[in-house]
């Protein structure tokens, strides 16, 4: 995926970027990035076909697990729930990472054309958010088809929270470590570790687990799907985690951008 600069912004497309309003420029940026992502057939397959495969694959694979006392549902259902959270989160994280890493050159060119650094950054985040929500919709639809969801709105919210959280983690990794192989390695290992411990498949009671990015989204999603309720304190904690993560990402971006300008 390369960050192309071939944006078209409707009525404002003919005007130079500097003459457009900030909102126009942001919308143009987000639309261009989303369109560029969807232009690759493989990415459409990733978005539409792989989440169902992962959800169902996790469910079938876990069907052969014994039902341990600490499990909150039968293993097959737990597998589908875990697959849904992980599929939505990891795809968003991957898109966040590749959006940032592959966009360095294209954003440089857009900067020359009059786009501000802040607008480019926000448009990248907007793209990650848009694809995250799209991924969550497909994943949630798959899960709902196979599992009775007790509280659909709360469950979907938790899934979006998981996707947004990992989208930001992908952006953070891409900002701090802007290389595809290295960034992918870090993202894969972070998400693996996180999912192993937060999923409820492995019995872990260490307080360290509450610091993991998927802890609150997983807990919220499980309780929304299985019990029809989402604990307010866990929802607030998950949103606070997202807010802090956003500030960390912003800080990292400002630091890297100011370092680049100084160089």
């Amino acid at each position: 995926m390369s960050g192309g600069a071939t944006a078209s912004g409707g009525d404002t497309a003919g005007r130079p970027p500097a003459d457009r309003t900030r909102r126009d420029r942001l919308a143009t940026g987000v639309l261009a990035h989303v369109r560029e992502f969807l232009r690759e057939p493989v990415h459409v397959v990733l978005l539409l076909a792989l989440p169902p495969l992962v959800v169902e694959g996790y469910g079938r694979a876990m069907a052969s697990f014994p039902e341990f006392p600490y499990m909150t549902a039968v293993p097959a259902t737990l597998g589908r729930i875990n697959g849904a959270v992980f599929a939505a989160a990891f795809l968003a994280g991957l898109i966040g990472l590749f959006q940032v890493v592959s966009a360095v050159q294209a954003d440089g060119r857009l900067g020359v054309c009059g786009f501000s650094r802040t607008e480019l950054f926000v448009s990248r985040l907007g793209t990650v958010a848009a694809v995250s929500v799209g991924s969550a919709v497909v994943t949630f639809a798959t899960l709902w088809w196979r599992v009775d969801v007790a509280a659909p709105a709360a469950a979907f919210g938790a899934l979006v929270l998981a996707a947004l959280t990992y989208g930001l983690i992908g952006v953070l990794i891409g900002t701090v470590l802007p290389r595809e192989l290295e960034g992918s390695l870090v993202l894969v290992f972070v998400s693996d570790f996180d999912d192993f411990l937060a999923s409820g498949i492995v019995d872990v009671d260490s307080p360290v687990v509450t610091l993991l990015p998927l802890h609150y989204p997983h807990a919220l999603f499980r309780s929304a799907v299985l019990e029809g309720a989402a604990a307010t304190d866990e929802a607030l904690a998950g949103l606070a985690y997202l807010g802090v993560l956003f500030l960390v990402v912003l800080g990292a971006y400002v630091r890297v951008a100011s370092g680049g300008e100084g160089a």
Partner: peptide, 20 residues
Amino acid sequence: DRLAGVYLALFGTMLDLFLV
């Protein structure tokens, strides 16, 4: 491409080795 390749690498190994 790389994005899809990383996705397949993660879920392929997780499904096969960690779950199945």
